[in-house]
Amino acid sequence: MEIKKAENYNGKISTLRRNTTFKTPQKWDVIVNHITEGLMPGTLNWLTNVKKVETSPGELHYAAEVSCHFLVTRKGEIYQLADLHHGTWHALKRSPSARIVKERSAPPNLYTVGIEHEGVHKETQGRLTAAQYEATLWLHKYIIEQYEATYKEPFLVDRDHILGHYEVDTVNRSITDPGREFPWEELLTDLIKWDKERKTVKQDPKNGPYVNDKGERLWFRVLAGSYKTRAEAEAALKELESKGFKDSWLMAAYVKEK
């Protein structure tokens, strides 16, 4: 699966420059899903719009004042609009129903990754095309792996950490973002299955009896015995080596005698 960089994307900062928070966000351990309420290419142009408009005499504001990290189109294309290490303006907190958002005092934009899905709610109710679903499933896995590579800890794959915009803002978004028919059950089922499988040690007859998803082999060590003197232990070690056990070593430890 390919991630396309939006026009003028800067991996160190953001293509959105004025639509993102330059302050380094907290650990981005929550994913928030959205619906764009617009179609390509207009929705991509809007999300990357940094032009100023005069909203009232003498007052200039950025036209969009909205942004996200990724956009998934109905064709299954993935666009990256901002770097994961920068907060975007996608999830303003208003009477949230999500437990994790209610418990945290920090603005959600500082610890969430925003994914917009191309679509119009009144037409789709949040349904995704087959290509769009496969793309967002892949993207969720990608974000999870990026989190784990960055913070050296597991991402919690559950509905507390994979949300809809309506769970962050119950005032303006209600159930319409991303929509009642957004495939929550399918998405979580597939992600949990993938998460479990990648953490399970697998048997591989070609590369060894036990190999994990990183290609690392699991080895089993066998203690040959315990000896009261170093001379006895060294003699046993030499005997093992003479029989082909090259990966053997001597170790010592204090043991309270009974």
Rank of each mutant, 00 (worst) to 15 (best):
M1R: 14
E7K: 13
N10I: 05
N10R: 05
I13D: 09
I13G: 03
I13V: 14
L16T: 00
L16I: 03
L16M: 15
K23E: 01
T24S: 11
K27V: 01
V30G: 06
N33H: 15
H34P: 08
T36H: 09
M40P: 01
M40C: 03
G42Q: 12
G42F: 08
N45V: 01
N49A: 13
V53R: 15
V53Y: 13
L60G: 09
L60T: 12
H61P: 02
A64T: 15
V66A: 04
V72S: 14
R74K: 10
L81A: 05
D83S: 15
L84Q: 11
H85R: 12
H86R: 01
K93F: 03
K93A: 01
I100V: 07
R104Y: 00
R104W: 02
S105T: 11
P107K: 04
V113G: 06
H121D: 09
H121M: 07
H121T: 07
E123Q: 07
G126L: 10
G126K: 15
T129Y: 06
Y151I: 02
Y151K: 04
P154V: 09
F155W: 02
L156W: 03
R159M: 09
H161C: 02
L163C: 00
L163W: 01
G164L: 00
D169W: 08
R180G: 05
E186T: 09
T200E: 12
K202Q: 09
N207F: 04
V211C: 02
N212P: 05
D213V: 13
K214A: 03
W219F: 12
V222Y: 11
G225F: 06
R230T: 11
R230N: 14
L240C: 12
E241M: 12
E241L: 04
K243A: 08
K243L: 04
F245K: 15
D247F: 07
D247L: 11
W249H: 11
M251E: 14
A253D: 07
Y254R: 10
V255R: 13
K256P: 04
E257L: 06
K258W: 02
